[in-house]
Amino acid sequence: MSNRPTLDHRAKSHLSYFIYMAHRISGLLLACFLPIHFFLLSQSLFGADELDHYLKLTDFWAVKVGEWGLVTLLTIHLVGGVRLLMIEFGTWRGLRKGWIQAAIVLSIISGLLFLALAD
């Protein structure tokens, strides 16, 4: 039986941990989304009308919010992932804090672009 303190949010309150968690969660959510995405597109196998029928379903506002979320998550995962590849395969230049800032900024831009361009 143990009631001693364990690693809590104070130990994890640094930028590198934040982007690690964001990268992990975004990856998990994207992995859940992927089969749905492929299923939707695979309806094209039955012709344009069938695909259109499913595309119309995505006009619902809640789905649009979800799509905005997915674009944001995809950008976080992409930039966070490239950061990891730089850390693991590139010349060592620290924890690449610049890439963390880029991940945050670019994902916001992605989200805004989606909102601006989507119908």
Partner: peptide
């Protein structure tokens, strides 16, 4: 399970959009 879904549904989607439909 995820791997199977990605491979099967993904490839079906690619075939689907390439062929534009093989009918119902």
């Amino acid at each position: 399970v995820l791997a199977t879904l990605v491979l099967v549904l993904g490839t079906t989607a690619v075939i689907g959009v390439f062929t534009g439909g093989v009918g119902r």
